[in-house]
Nucleic acid binder design. Structure first.
Lengths: 251, 251
DNA sequence: GAGGGTCAGATGGTCGGACCATTGGTGACT
DNA sequence: AGTCACCAATGGTCCGACCATCTGACCCTC
């Protein structure tokens, strides 16, 4: 049927796929400030009618938003805009790692670049409140020298606190994303760790440099710490027979 | 022949949501090496049966994977594992920016941290081939001093080439993600740019530092360049009446 | 026989409707 | 007044159908 043209000059083919329309709709609502973190979206049946797509298509779009970490659904309750601190779900990076074979060393190196920058910025402009948060974590680390799992939690939180203290939420989000991946493997090997005390000491030196407002020193201390941490994790890894059979599993 | 009983007989429960099952299935295939970039997935109807979910649920899962940039569908052709260089779709960061009000300065600062690290690493270990790629982009910039849009393209590609030359794909992916956002706004203002020649000169100095294998100098030159670029873009922005009315739109 | 145009099957995209599972509030019962 | 059971609202899943697009094989023309 060559004659059947559906282009329609009035409505050029500008129409996006239905799912994309939903994403765009929500995006505009967010950018206009009509939807804020924690807010609840209309029920799917209502929202579908409002946007002008079917419910399956609407759900398709919402599925995308959920994958991006923008919304969160609870059966029986409703769909909500993600609340809490900015969080770039670890899933994307995790998939890229599996697809393209990112190695643990590469992840570690990227993390190093980000954390060095964050430490430097934190030393320049951390507020008193955030410096206190750092001190709390350092204290908690010293208090849990005999409990590796607990120690690791405060280790992670210290690094997160440094990222926050940098005052740059973009940087903090990126660090959080990578740290989540590193944490997963670290959790399995930390039991074999030794010298937790030395690790705590290093964190304390980082804290002091930030508190003193010395960017170069903060960067150096963080660099030293990460270099040793990387080495430590590698040895923890070796101490375990581990499974080498898998081909594509790096991270 | 049970008339219409829906499964659930032997499987106790603990089953993930249908969409998550699909994601997990594909993830395992990728990690096991059975699915590689460029490969085609089975048709939706077949795949749904294989995994044991309905087609709508399967599509829900595929929608998630598409949002993460893992797969790409083409109507009439099939669904394929994403090929090409690692790419973390800009959508996630873009949404976070809208949700939490990341400012352009914060994006720029995060980019600065990443690019400084990349420049430093590139100077340490760039291969001859990748150094040549840098040289090509610098030359292309000098050749397009009278064409701002073309100049901008090579500007972006130069930075991308530096990220690649760092030899760390994780870093390159993160830089690419942030650059995509910055590029969007820059494209609109570059026409007002002046001193393209000086910009090209700065890129050349960065290139030389990398070629000379001098990490500190590469880092410094990149830092100088980004500081000036940020300042330049700010003035380009001011030169335009622009729309200030929007409340939540920062990036 | 070779080339190009055409048609059918495959495949993803959309839709409407239906039913299930969970949640949270409300009203009835004690 | 307190507790509990019920029910409406809402997201989760599924079915079947039809449309839009692409791919490849078939057929007609030269």
């Amino acid at each position: 049927m060559p004659t059947a043209i559906r282009g329609k000059t009035s409505k050029p083919d500008t129409e996006l796929p239905a799912a994309a329309q939903v994403v765009e709709f929500v995006r505009r609502q967010i950018e206009a400030g009509r939807l804020r973190p924690g807010d609840r979206l209309p029920a799917e049946r209502d929202l579908a009618e409002e946007i002008g797509v079917s419910r399956p298509s609407l759900r398709s779009g919402l599925q995308t938003l959920q994958a991006l970490g923008v919304i969160q659904s609870r059966q029986g309750a409703g769909t909500f805009i993600a609340a809490g601190p900015p969080r770039l779900g670890g899933a994307p990076l995790s998939f890229l790692a599996a697809l393209h074979g990112f190695t643990r060393d590469e992840m570690f190196e990227a993390r190093r670049v980000l954390e060095l920058g964050a430490a430097s910025l934190a030393a320049e402009r951390a507020t008193q409140e955030r410096i206190t948060a750092l001190a709390d974590e350092v204290a908690a680390m010293f208090a849990s020298l005999d409990d590796p799992q607990e120690f690791l939690i405060h280790d992670v939180q210290f690094h997160k606190a440094v990222a926050t203290a940098s005052g740059n939420p973009v940087l903090a989000t990126l660090i959080d994303t990578i740290s989540a991946l590193v944490y997963e493997t670290r959790k399995l090997t930390v039991e074999r760790a030794h010298d937790l005390k030395e690790s705590a000491e290093m964190h304390r030196r980082i804290y002091r440099a930030i508190k003193a407002g010395d960017p170069e020193k903060a960067r150096d201390e963080m660099g030293t710490h990460l270099a040793l941490a990387r080495q430590a994790q590698a040895s923890e890894e070796e101490a375990r027979p581990a499974k080498r059979a898998n081909s594509g599993r790096q991270v």
